[in-house]
Amino acid sequence: MSTAASRLTKDQLAARIAADIPRGSYVNLGIGQPTLVADHLDLDSGVVLHTENGMLGMGRAATGDEIDPDLTNAGKVPVIETPGCSYFHHADSFAMMRGGHLDVCVLGAFQVSETGDLANWHTGAPDSIPAVGGAMDLAVGAKEVLVMMTLFGKDGRSKLVPELTYPATGLACVSRVYTDHGVFEVRSDGLLVIETFGCTVAGLMNSTGLALRDGPRWQSEHAQVVSHSGADRATPRAVSPSATPGRG
């Protein structure tokens, strides 16, 4: 396990996640904080951004004359095209998600359980208006679901929990949880701490109340999240062979 001296800012966390996204991946970034990850993706890495409203090859936010009301991201923010982009309708866009064609998605969360259940759509409060959007489709569909969140809520409680208390978005769907205090991998035998930022595993066990294992941060600079085995792919892509231990 590697460590950093202090907890990460949102931007540092976004950069940390971006570093784990393999070259050539098809990636969906959820609305809110996960969109920050785009700022840290190397444009030459061949990563292709998917936006659920019907586009592959989405570019950065549009400015000035680039703004076109017919071209927005999932957060309804105007964006630009990149060379090689494509458009498709909503049923195709979600077939792409549900059908397991996206390599990685990054989502925000209210809570993640130690078995990888995700809650990010509804607080369950009686006066709240539920809104789900594409969260449930992404949770079940992307090959790897990465969560980006603060480890503790405003009330100081851990958002990484033994069992969800908020309504679930998807069950056993999260691969990794990236937080300001550390990175956690969801394994079938429990949570593994891959990295800590300004704290220790013992400290995290104390503050979260969870049983955590100290995991190796295997590899060099770029841990590979996505396993491109090739077995389930029609066309091999230029992704370096995965040395990543399998999930679970």
């Binding site: 049923a91 549900r98 789900v132 969260a135 449930m136 489709d137 079940v140 569909g141 679930a168």
Partner: peptide
């Protein structure tokens, strides 16, 4: 869920009587 919304309309247009989707399984929806 957004993909289910799209697919339910697609099903209607395609003459499909319903479909099984993993989206939302185990949730309130």
């Amino acid at each position: 869920p957004q993909g289910t919304l799209a697919e339910r309309m697609r099903a209607a247009g395609a003459g499909i009587g319903g479909f099984f989707t993993p989206t939302g399984f185990g949730t309130l929806l």
